[in-house]
Write a protein that binds this DNA or RNA. Sequence first.
DNA 1: AGCTGTACCTGCAGGC
DNA 2: TGCCTGCAGGTACAGC
Length: 272
Amino acid sequence: MPELPEVETIKRQFERALMGRKVTSVDIGLQKMIRGRADAFARAVSGARFTGARRRAKLLMLDLSNGYTILIHLKVSGQLLYMPSETGIDKHTHVVFHLDNGMDLRLRDVRQFGYLKLAHREEATGMPEVRDLGPEALDVSLEQFRTALARRRNSKVKAALMDQRIIAGVGNIYSDEALFCARISPERLVSALDADEEARLYRCLRELLNSSIMRRGTSVALYVDLFGKKGENQHYLKVYGRSGKPCEICAGKIKRIKVAGRSAHFCPSCQK
DNA sequence: AGCTGTACCTGCAGGC
DNA sequence: TGCCTGCAGGTACAGC
């Protein structure tokens, strides 16, 4: 599912492929994919050009020449796709931006959890879904990371890592992988981490996010990049989606448990 | 306030 | 076989 590296991948590809392109019209097949009025959304976007792309946590923001910004959250199964307009539209494609070069930008979302939202450019970062986010996972210093985590000292470390108000951009895949890399159990309380463990977790998280960006993200389930291509990082996962399989370090079985209502994958003998 | 549980939605795995 | 149930996922929101 799209987390920080996947959204960053789409953002970078969008910047190279769609900057300056004009939206000639917008088709909305499923109104509820738009937060706010769908007809007003289509009217506001039609005729504008893309002038910029930004990412904040897992949110993608597309700036338009008319002063509007489109906020996009892909949630679990959303795909943002750039393809020729003549390509057939399947039942999971809910919004189509027709462009001035014979291409479309399409939102496809099997689970229908994602959304598009229109904002004025200067107000986009003040919207509740942006305003309440904690510091970017790749922008924090070790000291800021410690301070942020401490805000949930009584929580399990897995829950704190995935809390977007604490650290923004990390989801289930990268929290599991970072905890394995740092040899910390997802069930450990934040308050029980020592300084060395916090530092390991910080470095592991950064390295894993950065290397996944280099590999255009992790394609488990439905994630594909802007061109509909799978990423490569799924081939490097150590624990996520590997329950029952041998740990690469100790050959013991990877376990899956529930932590704070979410599935957590880990090696019980390597992670303490 | 701060945490946990549940709804949202669909496809798919597993059981019989 | 094929039906049926349960589960996965990120976030918003209800409720303790």
